[in-house]
Amino acid sequence: MNGMRVRSLKNAGMMLLMGLATFIVLTPLIMIFFHIVKMGAGSINLDFFIQIPSPPGESGGGMANGMVGSVILILMASVIGIPTGIFGALYLSEYEGNRLASVIRFCADVLSGVPSIITGLVAYTLIVVPMHGFSAIAGAVALGLIMIPIVLRTTEEQLKMVPGTLREASLALGVPFWRTTLQVTLRSGLKGIITGILLSIARVAGETAPLLFTSLGNHFWSKKITEPMAALPLQIFNFAIAPYEDWHRLAWGGALVLVVVMFGVSLTARWFNRDRSIG
């Protein structure tokens, strides 16, 4: 009887601890979200989405160039990061145990551990310096490098889950190896791969550091990808540290948009992944 009491006491204690832990995890998240909504909601209006920032000291304006810039940068980064990541993962899954495979895996691990500002420096050295100028291309390369290991790892995990019997079934029908890889192996893991891609996009969408000395930012619309280009996180950063009230307001609005977009992307990713076990 006494044992019972001790146990139910322990149980209650543990429940309390877990409740507390949940609270500690959720509180900052909710606080951040509410704070951003409170500070940013006032800046969100039509102009915010269609205007470029107004000059210092003038009110109004928006962050249209930053948002469009972010989309362009992410699209370009995807062109670099998604195919490279997927083909790398295909190589890893098809040539398991081969020397080059371990080299690729090692590089991906290193790449995913590199602080993003260093990735920015690499893009600076590789592209900004030889091209004699900051450019959207350099920014996209930096973001693409960040995407590669994320796409590669999630894709590899997905491909590992594709049953070998399915590939064998296809090969035994006289389907060429590369067609089997693309249409059976890759297809079967597609949902998970899309999830990985979305998560990698959510990750780079908020990156500021790698853009600081690559894409640089731009107060106006960029006409070429060989020129500096605005990006939402960069604009938030620059406006937040500037001494103008109006710019602070824009920065809060930008933060709200960024958070909502990233939340949406993550939700979509989860939705894609909802019945992964059934394939």
Binding site: T165, E168, A169, A172, L173, V184
Partner: peptide, 14 residues
Amino acid sequence: RRRVGMVFQKPNPF
């Protein structure tokens, strides 16, 4: 493999 087909132990339709 188009001349020599194969059926596996566990049914494995796509």
